[in-house]
């Protein structure tokens, strides 16, 4: 793993409210001090190993974001910081934004034929500084991913309301069982 000991990040505000930007800055302050983990914020995308998006990527930012994205040498990591970058946040379907990193990849694929790089999604509004550190640690495979997709499916034979109420009157607290599917296991 190339970035195990050293990871330089270029931070790109793609229309964020500043909350995530400040938290990104915050992880370099004495309390969290990620310099101890070899993480550094760089001003030039050319120097960067990772590019941190904060914000839902507004229409106005889009061309600039593509430019900066392409300036980062391969192989690179994308950190989608905050709920806006992950899935568009509260503005996900507004006319002025494209709505998160996934849409951004779609545009990249269509217009430039670029495949999406390794991406770490860090939800939070804004994510705690520690959550960002955890995300970076995940990118380095230093920690286990805790968050897994979960699908719960209710198993039940009753499906028409008439029988339901016959049964419901006899057993008041009847609750059908649920089956859990965890993806990625």
């Amino acid at each position: 793993m190339m970035f195990k000991k050293s990871l330089w990040v270029f931070h790109l505000n793609s229309g964020s409210c500043n909350g995530c930007d400040i938290e990104v800055l915050n992880i370099f302050t004495p309390k969290q001090d990620v310099e101890r983990l070899g993480i550094k914020l760089v001003g030039s995308p050319r120097h960067a190993d990772a590019i941190a998006f904060t914000g839902p990527i507004t229409r106005e930012c889009l061309p600039k974001a593509i430019e900066a994205f392409m300036a980062v040498p391969e192989p690179k990591i994308v950190l989608a910081i905050g709920s806006c970058a992950c899935g568009g946040g509260i503005w996900f379907d507004s006319y002025a934004v494209i709505g998160g990193i996934k849409e951004f990849y779609k545009i990249l694929k269509e217009k430039h034929g670029i495949e999406p790089p390794t991406t770490i999604y860090i939800p939070g509004c804004p994510p705690k500084p520690e959550a960002i550190i955890y995300g970076v640690a995940l990118a380095r495979k230093a920690v286990e991913q805790k968050q897994k997709s979960e699908i719960f499916v209710e198993e039940s034979d009753i499906d028409d309301a008439a029988t339901l109420f016959k049964e419901a009157t006899s057993t008041r607290h009847f609750i059908p069982k649920i089956e859990v599917i965890k993806r990625g296991e």
């Binding site: 970035f3 001090d33 101890r36 070899g38 040498p73």
Partner: peptide, 28 residues
């Protein structure tokens, strides 16, 4: 510098790691 700013700071080998990493990355 880190100590004077109340931080833990990087290990003193950090710059070495940075350089080793950069050497493995392709120039553009």
């Amino acid at each position: 510098r880190a100590r004077l700013q109340c931080r833990k700071g990087p290990p003193i080998t950090q710059t070495w790691w940075d350089i080793l990493k950069l050497l493995r990355r392709p120039p553009v």
